[in-house]
Every structure is written in structure tokens, then in C-alpha cells.
């Protein structure tokens, strides 16, 4: 996979990332708490990966941070202000089916720009540029169901970033992809995020993915947050430090 990504940012100044913080938070649906006493401090511009077994509340955590699910107890803040509702500041990327199937790729990416009130010509130009950034130049008119799973996730990524969010919340975005496509998407994500300063919370059940992408890895349910040695290199998979870290994570998760 060789995706041409220009490092010049789409807009002149990328918005600064936000600090996201949960303290003593109980999250879940009313009457159905999934996690309680949750403490997490995510620094501005950081890429935090969150791992944990299925059903441990990873998606709930993201929906709480997005403002879609109010915390049942405790505090959930963005830059020390409580998060009470969804805002364009915090974009959400879904595992699959997040695109509107009746809109082609470009019109999906235009949606956040339309909501921000940009004029038609400007939205069109920006959406086209974002699609080029994720390697989908020339596929602007394609409908989601005519695209592969990997291409659809590229469109979702372009759509999330087009809104110039200050935080990107990603809910197992590559979980439905085959291993080869997933590796390519991880590289693409790293490249594209380099042009933004957004804070990223990336949920996955794949420990290797969490280690490759994350500045830090949070183990949901155990309260542990581990630092990951930089720089990111795929070859680091076999290095003793990474192997030890992976072993530690797997042991903590009890898998």
C-alpha cells in the first residue's frame, strides 16, 4: 500500500487538541452501568489507545466522551468543562456503516462542512481535498455500498477530519477489515493524523494495533495505563520491550 499523503495541512492552521478527562465516572445507559470509578486523563494531542475484551464498555466510553451518553456519576470534562452534549469538537468514527448510504463519498465528507455552514463550492473543494488525502482521489462520486470496507473507513476518516475536530474518537474503526487492509489503514491513520493536532482516543480489541498506534495504551477495566516506547515502527513488534509490554497487557486482560 503506497498512499500519497501530502503533509501540507488541508487548512492553514489545524485546531489544537483538547484535554479529555474522566474522574470517578460511572458510564453506561441509565439503570445499566457498564463501568464505574473510571479515571482517565488524556492529554491534548495525545493518541490514546484503549484495549479490553468485548463487552467491557469500550464503545460506551467513546459515546460518553462524544457526549451522546451522559455520565451516570462522576465527571467527564473537555478542557475542564463538563461534556453535556455532542459537539462538532469531538468527531466519532464508527466500526462500520457510519456513512450515509444515499450520499456518495464526497457528499458524506461534505456533511460536517454543510453543518458548519460553509458555502457549496468551498465544501466541495475541501471534501475533494480530504478524500485525496486518504487516497480516494477520483472516487468522489462512488456510493458507500460500491466501495470496499477499507475504502469506506477511509471516507469515514476523511469525514471526521473535515469537520476540523479537536478530538477524534474512533470505535474499532479497522475491526471489520482483513489483516492486510488493517495494516495499511493503520499506516494511513498515522500519516493523516500527523497533519492535525487533534487528541485521539482509539478503541480496539487488537493489542498489536493498540501498541503500534498508541502513545499510551489504556487497559479498560483494570485501570492501568501504559506508556509505549516511541518512535512507532512496525519492526518494533519483535523487540524485547514490545514483547514484554504485549505480554503484560495480555496478562492484565486475562486472555
Amino acid at each position: 500500500m503506497t498512499t500519497q499523503v501530502s503533509t501540507s495541512t488541508v487548512e492553514t492552521e489545524a485546531p489544537k487538541g483538547v484535554r479529555l478527562r474522566l474522574s470517578g465516572a460511572t458510564i453506561g445507559r441509565p439503570g445499566l452501568p457498564v463501568l464505574d470509578g473510571l479515571d482517565l486523563d488524556i492529554a491534548p494531542g495525545e493518541l490514546l489507545t484503549v484495549v479490553g475484551p468485548s463487552g467491557c464498555g469500550k464503545s460506551t466510553l467513546l459515546r460518553t466522551l462524544a457526549g451522546l451518553l451522559p455520565a451516570l456519576d462522576g465527571q467527564v470534562d473537555q478542557d475542564d468543562r463538563p461534556i453535556t452534549r455532542p459537539e462538532a469538537d469531538r468527531a466519532l468514527v464508527f466500526q462500520e456503516d457510519g456513512l450515509l448510504p444515499w450520499r456518495n463519498a464526497r457528499r458524506n465528507v461534505e456533511l460536517p462542512l454543510a453543518i458548519r455552514g460553509l458555502p457549496r463550492a468551498e465544501r466541495r473543494a475541501q471534501a475533494t481535498r480530504w478524500l485525496a488525502q486518504v487516497g480516494l482521489a477520483g472516487r468522489e462520486d462512488q456510493l458507500p455500498h460500491r466501495m470496499s470496507g477499507g475504502q469506506r473507513q477511509r471516507v469515514q476518516l476523511a469525514r471526521a477530519l473535515a469537520g476540523r475536530p479537536r478530538a477524534v474518537l474512533m470505535d474499532e474503526p479497522f475491526g471489520a477489515l482483513d489483516a492486510q487492509t488493517r495494516a495499511g489503514m493503520q499506516n494511513l491513520l498515522v500519516e493523516v493524523l500527523a497533519g492535525t493536532r487533534a487528541t485521539v482516543v482509539f478503541v480496539t480489541h487488537d493489542v498489536d494495533e493498540a501498541l503500534f498506534l498508541g502513545d499510551r495504551v489504556a487497559l479498560l477495566g483494570t485501570g492501568q495505563v501504559l506508556d509505549v516506547p516511541r518512535p512507532r515502527e512496525r519492526t518494533a513488534h519483535g523487540e524485547p520491550a514490545t514483547v514484554a509490554l504485549r505480554r503484560e497487557i495480555l496478562a492484565s486482560l486475562g486472555t
Binding site: 462500520e96 455500498h145 470496507g149 477499507g150
Partner: peptide, 9 residues
Amino acid sequence: AHTSGRAAS
């Protein structure tokens, strides 16, 4: 129906 396709490379 189409979630397991490959990305364009």
C-alpha cells in the same frame, strides 16, 4: 453485505 472487501492500494 460488503464489509470484508479490500482497500484500494
